[in-house]
Simulated scan of single mutants.
Amino acid sequence: MIEHKLTAGHIGRVRMNTTLLMVGQTLSLLAKFAVSAVLLTVHIRSQRKSALIWAIAWLVAAFSIVADALGILQLTALTEAAFSSLLFLGSLVFLSEELGKSVKYCVLWAAPPLISAIYGVFLGNDWNSVVGIPYGVSAFFIVLSGALIITPIDSKFKSAKLAALSLGILGVHKMDYPFLRGVKWFAPIGFTLGAALTVITAYFMSRMVLSREFINLKGTVRINVDPGIELVSSNAYRRVKDDLKGYPVLAFIRELTPPKEWKAYFLTSLPGKDTITPTNLPRILELSGRYLREAGMQGITGVVVIDGIEYLVIHNGITAVTKFLGTLRDLVILQDGRLIVVVDETAMERKDYRIIKRVLIGE
């Protein structure tokens, strides 16, 4: 009689664990598809490469659930490793985007999880070598992904902090799986916790990429700005700053007193926060394009200010600078934005000033 009761209880626990497993897998699958769709949408709108890489990473993570449900260990290890590598790669690209400096050999830095999984699949002869070790390496790189996200961000970027923290906790939890998988009483708890952390992480990553900080559009719109191209002197620039206080302007400047609502980058050869080297003209174009697209989506006129043309000419030459200004002008016009270039006619050769004026406003 006692034996019968134990057997019935055991069957009940198995059914309960199976139900928890199915519910957890379903929630995780939906969360991963949802965050992937959000990230892809953000990439299409903002053209941030990090968003695209993260979108692919979460899509691959969704397939890891399918592989796990089918009991294909090798595919589970490979998809989990691919998710970790892509997540880490996206974080490296995010770091590069935020700092304005290219991180070399990103793909190589992100490769270890996938390499360990490939070795495990082809050379492993038990669960630990096929899945356990690659799973642990992948989990560690998820933790590192969170660390990379939090490294360059501003203290006000709270949604990124929460996304980084949730990634770190998720990675730490995944690292205990190879050790605790054999503990029967912990299995339902561990899987439920993992599913919950996946949903939470997906939510906070969605909040992060949908935030204004992610696309560098800040400030409160208080005035209407007409599209166009404007060439102003340094004296007139003081009026511009007063007129555009409270407006989410994107500025590349040589002076250190922009309105606090502006997103300003200081042009300098010295490293520092929110700085851009004067020779990195493609980076200025990249940031301007992203900002103008997002401003258009929000129904406002994007305003780009360039102050320090003489400084750019010194480092790049007049030919490179005029090509850059011509491309930036076209970008602004196509996005119905406004470009304000600050330059004093007396601060450079007259012919150079005329070339710049002709390129920008056709006179």
Rank of each mutant, 00 (worst) to 15 (best):
L180E: 05
V343L: 15
V313Y: 05
P112Y: 13
S138W: 10
R15N: 07
A110T: 00
H10A: 11
Q25M: 14
I189Q: 05
K241V: 09
I65A: 04
R222F: 04
L312Y: 08
W262A: 02
Q74Y: 10
F140C: 14
G299W: 10
S211V: 00
T257Y: 12
L30P: 00
S28P: 04
L78H: 01
Y203A: 10
T18V: 09
L92M: 11
G24P: 01
I153Y: 03
V130S: 09
I276L: 14
L267Y: 03
A139W: 01
V93N: 00
G246N: 07
D307Q: 13
L87C: 06
K184A: 08
T79Q: 06
K104E: 15
L334R: 01
V342M: 05
F266E: 04
G194N: 07
V342S: 04
S206K: 01
V38W: 02
K323H: 14
Y177P: 02
A164W: 01
S206W: 04
V321L: 08
G302R: 00
K32P: 00
E294D: 06
V183S: 09
L256F: 12
W262N: 01
G12P: 00
M297R: 07
S96D: 11
N235F: 12
L197Q: 07
T76M: 13
L244Y: 12
G136Y: 13
E310I: 12
L339K: 00
L270N: 07
G136D: 11
T79S: 13
S102T: 15
L312S: 03
I133A: 05
F94S: 02
L73A: 12
A82H: 01
E230V: 13
L360T: 04
L6P: 00
T79W: 04
K245V: 02
R290G: 06
V137G: 03
G24R: 01
I118L: 15
V42Q: 11
S64H: 12
R212E: 13
L334W: 04
L197S: 05
K161W: 11
S28Q: 13
L123K: 14
L285K: 08
P227W: 08
K156H: 12
L30F: 15
A117S: 11
P259Q: 10
G124L: 10
V121Q: 05
E255H: 12
L210M: 14
Y353T: 09
G100Q: 09
T151E: 12
V172A: 12
L21D: 07
V143M: 14
